[in-house]
Each structure stands twice: as structure tokens, then as C-alpha cells.
Design a binder for these strands. Sequence first.
DNA 1: AGCATCATCTACGACCCTTAGCTTATGTCG
DNA 2: CGACATAAGCTAAGGGTCGTAGATGATGCT
Lengths: 240, 240
Amino acid sequence: MADGAQDRRGARRRATIEQILDIALTLMEADGVAGVTVAAIARELGIQPPSVYRYFSSLLDIYDALFARGQRENLAAFRGAVDAGPPGLPAVVAGMEANGRWAVAHPALAQLLFWRPVPGYRPTPEAFAPAEALVGLLGRQLRTAVETGQVGAGADSDAGMDLLSVLYFGMLSQQLANEPGAPWESGRYTSRFGTVVRLFLAAYPPARRTDSPGPRPDRARPPAAPRRRPRSTGSSSPEG
Amino acid sequence: MADGAQDRRGARRRATIEQILDIALTLMEADGVAGVTVAAIARELGIQPPSVYRYFSSLLDIYDALFARGQRENLAAFRGAVDAGPPGLPAVVAGMEANGRWAVAHPALAQLLFWRPVPGYRPTPEAFAPAEALVGLLGRQLRTAVETGQVGAGADSDAGMDLLSVLYFGMLSQQLANEPGAPWESGRYTSRFGTVVRLFLAAYPPARRTDSPGPRPDRARPPAAPRRRPRSTGSSSPEG
DNA sequence: AGCATCATCTACGACCCTTAGCTTATGTCG
DNA sequence: CGACATAAGCTAAGGGTCGTAGATGATGCT
């Protein structure tokens, strides 16, 4: 079996698969997460719809491949940020921020990962695996943060991680639902990432001050804004 | 024009419309938010699909009617709880809890209200109106809470309400995504509603202690859980 | 009784997903 | 070089969907 030929074949095939996923992603960004169709992919690719089935066994399979790709990218962003700096609390914060930046930069894919927008689709365990690896990583860093006194005891418990996820996904969900497309820095919700971190520290205050870097665990008190003019506090706004 | 007859006609028509919405809601709970089809409604109703269009001009119109109904119910629950007790912070807390209880009891409708799961659907301003009324109500109660010293200054600002929405919708989103169907009391996330409230108070601590009822604004410190066994901290789990 | 309106139907067009089966291109091996 | 296996494309077709058009029967008013 000449590997060169096999490789050429396989490479061509893999390229087409990636191309299909790229097109599907574009459609998702344009027409909504559940707006991908086999027919539209085929049109964009210049082939007939049944030919798509040479590469994926169903439309849900395409969604699963996108899900897997998103989880991998997400994990890579998280891991990269965690490994880049000091372990413990700074790693947790850096990882979450990297994650959030990736999510707002890929809003459609993020919705596929975090919500359940596609009727009938359920991620396969393989596609879901990176998410569990990420949780494991986060847990280890949180544990380190607790052990070094950067965060109070219990922050690495199930309850602590649940609270962190509530804070983090709350911020992200509100951002994606009410201001999709806004960048991380200027997002109405993501721009208050620091407050979210401080709130977590307020729930699990470190017993003693440590001189390691990272956000100052002082009282979270955002500056009082100019008052009034309430806007949508939930629900997807009609003009979104 | 005899009103009695008109009424009988109109009543019959309204009954059919409600019936259609009830069926659509059932389908949504069963097949997912985006799983409603005109054909399925017609089947359930014992008529042919085109007949449905005598009552709604499109499938998205049906979604909009469901959205409006959900917003109305949501607002009614909130208002009822707010009006039942003392104003200010207790009203805010009671309103949010009533809201959350309604949401977990109607998970599919809640997803329609809070996320964007239906491709192509955007709520009309009329359907969205109750949400704005709710925000207005919430803002007034928060203002009262600030003025009476139950919460620190700035809690009724845009920033404060954004923070409150992050906490609240974060809790709700995680609950709906990871444990749909669980009741409010025993939900993995909703059961920590008290922590969420305490966190908000930690972000805007009252200058002085007041003797009005409501949750104690002491340090949020959930009991350290038995360690390990991390589970999905985000993303919709494959077995949901 | 006559008539307007409403509710329902059938037929149809334009999409969609997916399967079956055929044809053509590509790369391998005698 | 020629025969062959596999990959990748095609057409045809079945069973869905939403939504429109136009005809038919039922309801209730005058």
C-alpha cells in the first residue's frame, strides 16, 4: 500500500470535509444556529445535495463535527491561556477570559456549544470529551488556588464550580443573547468580567492576603452609572 | 349587529386559537423549542395544515403568540410576588424567585423567552412589551431598596441591573441547559438562589444594617461539598 | 329563505433530508 | 499498458415541511 497515494486521497477528502464545515459555519453565522441545510452547503460547494452524504452521514453529523471542532478550539484557547501564566487563580482567570473571548468571536458556534438550539441534535460523547477535559483542568487550577490561599476553602468544590459557572455563563449568555457580535472589550456584559471574578472571590474570600499576581480581591463596587434608562434585563430583545 | 352572536363566533375562534397555542406548547416541550410544525399542530387538532392559517398567518406568528403569552405569564408571576409583600429588596427577591419558579416549570417556553432558539424568529415589539414593563417594575423596587438603605448605592443603576441579570439568568440558563425538568427547590443551580442574592448584596453592600425582612446580607459561603467528581460546568451535556 | 362570512378542504409549488442506484474519475496492481 | 477497486459525483424518487389558491360546505344574520 503506497502511503503517498493514500495520503493524497485522504488529504483531498479531509480538505473537502473541512470545506463543508467551514461553509456550514458561515451559514450558521448568517442564518442562525439551526439554519444550516444540506442543500445550501451543496449549493455553496457547487455539488448536488446527495454528494454531501459521501462525507457526512446526516445533517446532525455535520452539527456534531462542528460541535467537536468548537469544543476543541475552546479547550485549546483555555489551555493555552492556563499554561501561559502562573498556576492557580491567575490561570483560572486567564483561562476563563480566553474562553470568553473565543465565544464572543464565534457567537454562532458558542450558541451551539452552550445552548440547545438544534432540534434533535445531541452531542456524541466523543464530541463532548474536550469539555470534560476543560472542567478537569479548571478544577485542578482551582484546587491549586485554594491550596495556595489565593481563594477561600471550598472554591474548588462542586458548589464552588457551579457558582463560577453561573457567573461565567450568565455573563456570556446575556452577552450572546442581547449583544451578539459585540467584541469582548466593549461588550455590555463581558466588559464587566472583572466584577464577575471579584464576586467569586467575595463568595470564597481568601483567608490571608497573598502576594501572587492576579486581580485584587477587594470589594466589588462598580462605579454608579448615570441612572435610569433601563434596558432589557433579560429576554432576547426584539431588535437584536 | 347582535353582539351575542358575534361573541359566540369570536369566542369559538378564540378557543381554537388557544387550543392551537396549547398544542404548540406541548409540542415544544416534547420535541424541543424549534420542533413545532404546522403539520403536527393540524394533526393533533384533527384538521388539515392549511386550515391553521385561518388563525395564524405563519408558523413564526404562532411562535410570537407563544412568546407573548409567556411574557405575560412571566410578568404576572413577577408582579404578583412583588405586590404580595413589602416593597424594596424583599419585593425584588420575591419577584425574581416567582419568575424563576415559573421558568423552571415551563422550560421550553422559558427557552423561547430567554434564548434565540428558533431560526428566523424575532419577537415583535407588542410581544416584547411585558418584558420591558417587568424591567421597569424591577428598577422601581431596586430604587426603593437603595433609598431605604436595604442595598448599597448604585444597585439600581444600569450596571447594577446588568449584574443582577447576569447572576439571575446565569443561574437559570445553567439550570435549563443542564438539568431541565428539575423543580426549583431541588435544582442543582436554582437551589442556590440564596447565594445569588447574597452575592448581589456583596457587590452593593448596604451602608447600614436595616431591620426590614429579607435575606441576611452576610458573607456568602456555601458549605464545602464532599470534593471531586466534577461534572459539566457548561455546555449542554450529551446525556441531557 | 336568502345571503354573507367563516372554516375547512383539495391541489399545488417550492423547498427540505435522505436513500437507491448508476456513471465517471482516480489511483493501484498485474 | 490494461484491468480493477474505490471514491466521488450524478439523477431519480420518497416522504417531509411551509405556505398559497381556489373550491366547497357550514354557520349565523336579516
